[in-house]
Design a protein around this nucleic acid. Sequence first.
DNA 1: AGCAACTGTCACAAAAGTGAAACAGTTTTG
DNA 2: CAAAACTGTTTCACTTTTGTGACAGTTGCT
Lengths: 235, 235
Amino acid sequence: MGRNGTKRLLLVEDDRALAELVKYHFAREGFTVTSTGVGDEALILIDEVQPDLVILDWMIEGVSGIEVCRRLRRSPATASLPIMMLTARGEEDDRVRGLETGADDFITKPFSPKELIARANALLRRSRPNLLAKKLNYEGIEMDLVAHRVRREGKPVALGPTEYRLLRHFLENPQRVFSRQQLLESVWPHSEEIELRTVDVHVRRLRIALSKDQQFDLIRTVRSEGYSLDADGAA
Amino acid sequence: MGRNGTKRLLLVEDDRALAELVKYHFAREGFTVTSTGVGDEALILIDEVQPDLVILDWMIEGVSGIEVCRRLRRSPATASLPIMMLTARGEEDDRVRGLETGADDFITKPFSPKELIARANALLRRSRPNLLAKKLNYEGIEMDLVAHRVRREGKPVALGPTEYRLLRHFLENPQRVFSRQQLLESVWPHSEEIELRTVDVHVRRLRIALSKDQQFDLIRTVRSEGYSLDADGAA
DNA sequence: AGCAACTGTCACAAAAGTGAAACAGTTTTG
DNA sequence: CAAAACTGTTTCACTTTTGTGACAGTTGCT
């Protein structure tokens, strides 16, 4: 996401005037803004433009903003996409509900564009490290996302593309157990047609690559569940 | 940070009544709360308690909240620590300034405790995903449902799938007695065809796994009734 | 084209987990 | 106290799940 230096924003807002205002301010901040006023369209656009940030109005045509949010969180591909919700509904319960559904921030209209931008920046500052920026590490493993290079205890580790993506996924969610199905969905580009057991094979390749120098295995097999990246493997 | 399952909050607020209120609500969410009303002290405490989240009032004695925030961001050790700022100053410029200084969220008094919690959770969800993992505890046993891992007194416990489900069921209903029949029905996938006595065997395996280090038995046998997870086995 | 790296599947081996049966031990009852 | 009723333990055959090595088809590069 967010290649060649441009930050991409998807704005989902059906009030044209407001949309223009927001657009203007974000454009000035260097964002490429795509916008729509319809919920269903938002879901398609997200797939298309791969935004770095989504701003969602609650009340829009078609699928509601909160429902869009829920769906984005449910799909592995967008589960960690930064989302800000926007609404005229000022009720506390709405705000809590929005946040609990997975929104990262919740702004009530009317709001100041400056604050919106400041909040967007705060959010990106926080979530970028995981998506865009430099390094991930866990227990002696260091993955440099820019250089596309992995080291363990300082020593370089050679990984194929799939193993790299797999490890990256684990590093982004250490200790968490993923089923083979989940791994396929979040690590493989076209997960549909692929055999579940293929995951095993790649996990094995990853294990071998990570343990080249007789280091202990960091990938834990959770029988009948899946795998996780975990320091104390067996226990 | 945030080891052994407890989430730690450092609250920096000099309004005693407000501090108590916030404390109360976060404690209910499972946080261990440390608090102070003095800026300088905050910096020391952060080093000491290694909180997972800091809530900073802007106007406090000594070093101001915003200055604390700035310093935290400057030091590598705390640069990515989640920070929420709190203030009575409702000015837009203040909010923007707070966010630009590195705060992750900015809440204006008066605020609702529920929203504060919801925002804290949203922030932690993004920055410390492990902390939000759902956990079950009882008498020194801790089951992390996301990592799919069980510990007793901090030490990892190895369980097979059935024992895991069995323990989970007990942890969800501690102290309650279940008949073998009930256990079969709620823990086994296809309970029909299975012998009642099979439960005994698995209970035994669970007991062994949980008592590996000579710890006392937490599963109580209730003669002619069934079993329960219960601290005082005799009773 | 020629080669090397990478992928996805299989088939088979190995490991882990499961359920039942049999017997030993305990507790409750008559 | 002895019989009856239960529960604890051990063992074993069987099933399910994973680990492994080999292989053939792709892809990307030179």
